[in-house]
Design a protein around this nucleic acid. Sequence first.
RNA 1: GGGCCGUUAGCUCAGCUGGUAGAGCAGUGGACUCUUAAUCCAUUGGUCCUAGGUUCGAAUCCUAGACGGCCCA
Length: 509
Amino acid sequence: MTEQAQQPAVDADENKLIAQRREKLAALREAGVAFPNDFRRDALAADLLERYAEVDGEALEAQPVRVRLGGRLMSRRVMGKASFVHIQDMSGRIQLFVQRDQLGTDAYQAFKRDLDLGDILGVEGVLFRTRTGELSVKCDSVRLLTKSLRPLPEKFHGLTDMESRYRQRYLDLIMNATTRETFRVRTAIVQFIREYLNARGYLEVETPMMQVIPGGAVARPFITHHNALDMDLFLRIAPELFLKRLVVGGFEKVYEINRNFRNEGLSTRHNPEFTMLEFYQAYADYRDLMDLTEAMLRAMAERVLGRTTIDYQGASYDFGKPFARMTVREAILHFNPELGAADIDDLDAARRVAEGMGLAVKPGWGLGKVQIELFEHTAEHQLMDPTFITEYPTEVSPLARRNDANPFVTDRFEFFVGGRELANGFSELNDAEDQAERFRKQVEEKEAGDLEAMYYDADYVRALEHGMPPTAGEGIGIDRLVMLFTDAPSIRDVLLFPHMRPEGRGSAA
RNA sequence: GGGCCGUUAGCUCAGCUGGUAGAGCAGUGGACUCUUAAUCCAUUGGUCCUAGGUUCGAAUCCUAGACGGCCCA
């Protein structure tokens, strides 16, 4: 692109391996086009292995199959006048057989001398089977398409250092088939969700990532700045309030799969940016969404994994049988058999129980908040099999519709597998006056020092005042779902580029 | 935020009680036309994460810091 590209700055700490490869590249530049882009392939490795799996060597000899393949040189076994190598493309690996007698003496010498592991090749030849039966390509042409300047990790152990795998994901993808598989599953899950919802009449939409009032969740936001407007904006913590505005507008079934940003610590379960599915449906309630969630996850497992049993970190979860359903109260009592209803239905009693467990109960907490702390502390992590928990206290559900029979709780559920929350859904609060009141309460909490409490969103209240049909909505954490489906212990394993602290090389900090 | 563990050649790792750094792979030179962790012979390669300290002497012991992993909040 630029003239400077011809004169690469020599890195002082660059080692000999790289220097040798740079010399080879310099010779290529000397000889002509060093980065040709006229090669076209007509096959992929894995396709060939599959298509000719049943075809034996004699048949391949009788009816030669010519192929053109592109890929990265991953292994080399060079003998005097013939070599076996493997190249890897997006589908997989295939072996090449390169002989002096096929290529010619000069070309074979160049093949042995100039190529390094990691180089990108374009090859042409015919399929055959080796004596051990491996489908391979007998090459009559091998072209170097891109010189690799850096050596690949070791061929047997590969790249195992977690930090390197996260920071240099490209290397991880080159070296580790399981990493490639994890991200294929991730894509398959997202694709499945789109197909599933599209087929049921949901409209996919995009709503603002930069918001003036961050809403729709209880979390601290990131702040950014708009120069022309000279104002701070928040990266969204949830799309919820915008999606419900769309329901007011008449898009009665909508969904969005996109990034949310929350300004909290990093851990094996938290990345500052993460992906959520949120979907909303008018003329439905939270029970309809539980049914939908159950059916969708079951179908997803069948489609993506080919089975309904999910193995995660040594445990096994059956998505084929009906999911358990339990209320928050029931869950607390179930996992604390020494407690009775009297212990958790009265604020003072519940507070004593919580403090007895070492929980720091704050003065302003009502019974609902104390109950949910008890639930999270004693029950949540024990919800192993797929389980819906319902009847969340109104106090901790500022956007959910109150239950008609018991206004202390809302028509809300959360979904758990393996002790982790995967989804959160509820019948939406469409009473504009109730919503305004709850926003006011959140603002009070914010003023009292709760950094995660919500802002008052006057336009959202105005939208509700126009009338939102009875609606149910749900959010599903895509990253956690992918972790479950790929048996990944850390969220970083399912993010292509997880957030990492800067490397801070030497004096650069 | 707290605790534990880790950081040594491009990669995967040894390095004992402090004595001045090693293997395999990769690389380089040579042999080899059915190999597949190819084989055989020879061989190059180091900011031992960083900065201090202790010591005649530090990869090793001490302190602080950086980055990462795991657990906890």
